[in-house]
Computed example of a mutant assay.
Amino acid sequence: MSAGVAAVNGVALQQAGEQVSPGDLRERAWSELLRQEAVRTGWLAAEAALQAPRLQADQEAAIHRMLQEQVPQRTPDDEECARFHRLQPHLFAVGSRVHVRHILFAVTPGVAVRALAQRAEEVLLELSHRQAPPERFAERARELSNCPSGAQGGDLGWLAPADCAPELGAIFFDEKLASLHPKLVQSRFGFHIVEIVERAPGRPMPYEQARERVAALLGQRARRTALHQYIRVLAGRARIEGVALEAADSTLVQ
């Protein structure tokens, strides 16, 4: 292997002389860590590889099944759900609605995620500037958003909690964050610059009615944390060269 080439356990993440951004290198490293773990645990067939191969659809599906087995969904208990409902009642109010607009920077196959996040941060900084004109948000949404709402200046209209992905609903319906918009948040779709235009508060939902929604939200949060810890453990066990990864030496905890 050539000097200066990033690698995971001796498998190169780039070709000699290839210039790759740190963010792209990290993405390649995570992917190769998962591929090697799938080979080690029998989910993928072993193959001689000096260069990290591009994953095919069937290989990605096998890795997804591996993660489902090794990082199972945790169901929060009733005490945990009740405590969360007590501390975050606004997330489960009946009749709550928010008028939202956003700019979506979509994460698609092959995209450089770190570069995309950096671009979103640059646009957020521009829109947060005190001298930014009010119409600038809509202009940037029409220019940059990967959501069909971009044609309407990013306007999503009035939304109820059930209309949103849980990770977005947690932001949209947190009244304490109203003064922080526009704000950059991440979801399964990519990076969003969101702004709350107007709120219509609802009435509290009793815990007995909200129990399933609370459990679903907490379960999704726990799984994201567990997946992050899982891959950090893989990094801690591997020989990593030429790329900085967050690693851990502890076992998986959900």
Results as ranks from 00 to 15, higher is better:
residue 41 T to L: 03
residue 41 T to S: 10
residue 41 T to R: 13
residue 43 W to E: 00
residue 44 L to Q: 07
residue 45 A to W: 10
residue 45 A to K: 09
residue 47 E to Y: 06
residue 48 A to F: 11
residue 48 A to H: 12
residue 48 A to K: 13
residue 49 A to L: 13
residue 49 A to P: 11
residue 50 L to R: 12
residue 51 Q to K: 09
residue 52 A to D: 05
residue 52 A to M: 02
residue 52 A to R: 09
residue 55 L to V: 05
residue 57 A to N: 13
residue 57 A to R: 14
residue 57 A to P: 10
residue 58 D to F: 12
residue 58 D to R: 13
residue 59 Q to E: 15
residue 59 Q to G: 05
residue 61 A to D: 07
residue 61 A to F: 02
residue 61 A to W: 07
residue 61 A to R: 10
residue 61 A to V: 02
residue 62 A to Y: 10
residue 62 A to T: 12
residue 62 A to P: 09
residue 62 A to I: 04
residue 62 A to F: 07
residue 63 I to A: 00
residue 63 I to Q: 02
residue 64 H to R: 15
residue 64 H to K: 13
residue 65 R to E: 07
residue 65 R to H: 05
residue 66 M to D: 04
residue 66 M to W: 07
residue 66 M to N: 04
residue 67 L to V: 03
residue 67 L to A: 00
residue 68 Q to N: 12
residue 68 Q to C: 04
residue 69 E to Q: 14
residue 70 Q to H: 15
residue 70 Q to Y: 14
residue 70 Q to I: 04
residue 71 V to H: 11
residue 72 P to K: 03
residue 73 Q to N: 14
residue 74 R to Q: 13
residue 75 T to W: 10
residue 78 D to H: 10
residue 79 E to S: 13
residue 80 E to H: 08
residue 80 E to L: 00
residue 80 E to F: 05
residue 80 E to G: 03
residue 82 A to W: 15
residue 84 F to D: 05
residue 84 F to V: 02
residue 84 F to P: 05
residue 85 H to T: 02
residue 85 H to R: 08
residue 87 L to A: 12
residue 87 L to K: 14
residue 87 L to E: 15
residue 88 Q to M: 14
residue 89 P to H: 03
residue 91 L to F: 15
residue 91 L to D: 14
residue 93 A to P: 09
residue 93 A to I: 08
residue 94 V to D: 14
residue 94 V to N: 15
residue 94 V to C: 13
residue 94 V to I: 15
residue 95 G to T: 06
residue 96 S to N: 09
residue 96 S to P: 05
residue 98 V to C: 04
residue 98 V to G: 02
residue 98 V to P: 09
residue 98 V to S: 08
residue 99 H to C: 00
residue 100 V to W: 11
residue 100 V to S: 07
residue 100 V to H: 10
residue 101 R to N: 03
residue 101 R to C: 00
residue 101 R to E: 04
residue 101 R to L: 00
residue 102 H to P: 04
residue 103 I to Y: 04
residue 103 I to L: 01
residue 103 I to K: 05
residue 103 I to T: 03
residue 104 L to Y: 06
residue 106 A to S: 08
residue 106 A to Q: 09
residue 107 V to I: 07
residue 109 P to A: 01
residue 109 P to Q: 01
residue 109 P to L: 00
residue 111 V to K: 11
residue 111 V to F: 07
residue 113 V to F: 01
residue 113 V to R: 13
residue 114 R to T: 03
residue 114 R to W: 09
residue 114 R to I: 01
residue 114 R to V: 00
residue 115 A to S: 05
residue 116 L to R: 11
residue 117 A to G: 07
residue 118 Q to G: 05
residue 118 Q to F: 10
residue 121 E to P: 03
